[in-house]
Design a protein around this nucleic acid. Structure first.
Length: 274
DNA sequence: CACCATGTTCCTTG
DNA sequence: CCAAGGAACATGGT
């Protein structure tokens, strides 16, 4: 998403701010949000974990502004022509001249805010050098929680959600119920590599999906891999997630579904025994 | 009607 | 102080 949007918004100036659901700005007050962004210019866009970090320069003093975005479970951010009708669950629309940057979110779980405090609580970036075996092992040693549940903790390593937690453990052949502090160093090493491979592949997949939703596109959520326009070979992209009862791609035994911390976990009981 | 859903944060309990 | 579990948030799909 960051790679897709970066070139589209760079250099664009916000001429008007339309907030339709103030909830997604939390905790920034709507007034502050609008006043800060009106007249500001986009200078860059980066990502940290699941967060998008928009960089801008303010209207009056050209002061640097950080705008933080999170898509929650159902959020989408896209550029649409000004004339087009906004989708039903549009939370914020930023006027950029001929086009608009639209943030829409059916469930309004996501955020678009000036408060960037959450990013300093995030663990290492999984694809950077800071995510190393020593740190990862030390963090896991401190917890008796099931490793699957621990992977959802963004303070351990940033950016793994419920889908890729199951996928990573399957790839590492580790049982999701295993206590985090019981993993051997070999398993920690395998898990780290699995996480990297799974996420790198997911980003690669994302780059093949057209993200130019304009409200008239299918409701594809690109990271779920169900966008109808996605290339065919990605149908098999997720090996265990949402595949209860289907044969394991390794051994053919049926994939199981269990509940951990009130979330679904999918795994192969044969391939992931320890 | 019941149950499920890609995420985070707050509250309670230990 | 921390860990862990559960509810809450809000809407839509099956």
């Amino acid at each position: 998403m960051a790679r897709h949007l970066r070139p589209l918004i760079r250099g664009k100036t916000i001429s008007a701010v339309d907030v339709r659901r103030a909830r997604v700005l939390r905790p920034t007050p709507p007034q502050i949000f609008c006043r800060t962004l009106r007249g500001a210019k986009f200078t860059g866009l980066s990502r940290r974990g699941k967060y998008l970090l928009f960089q801008l320069r303010g209207k009056t003093a050209g002061q640097p502004i950080s705008l933080l975005g999170h898509l929650g479970m159902t959020g989408r951010i896209f550029l649409a022509p000004k004339g087009r009708r906004l989708p039903k669950h549009t939370a914020v629309a930023l006027d950029l001249g001929a086009s608009r940057l639209v943030y829409e979110d059916t469930r309004y779980f996501g955020r678009l805010t000036l408060d960037t405090a959450v990013v300093c609580r995030l663990g290492p970036e999984p694809l950077e050098d800071e995510f190393n075996v020593a740190t990862f092992a030390r963090t896991l040693k401190r917890s008796r929680q099931a490793v699957k549940v621990k992977l959802l903790d963004q303070g351990v390593v940033a950016g793994i959600g419920n889908i890729y937690a199951s996928e990573s453990l399957f790839r590492a052949r580790i049982s999701p119920g295993m206590a985090a502090n019981k993993l051997t160093v070999t398993q920690v090493r395998q898990l780290r590599l699995a996480i990297r491979a799974v996420l790198a592949e997911a980003i690669e997949f994302g780059s093949t999906v057209p993200l130019n939703w304009g409200g008239n596109q299918p409701d594809g959520l690109f990271y779920f891999g169900r966008a109808p326009e996605a290339p065919d070979f990605y149908a098999e992209r997720l090996r265990v997630y949402d595949r209860e009862g289907q044969p394991c791609p390794n051994c053919g035994q049926p994939i199981k579904r269990i509940t951990q911390a009130a979330r679904s976990t999918f795994y192969c009981p044969h391939c992931q025994r320890v």
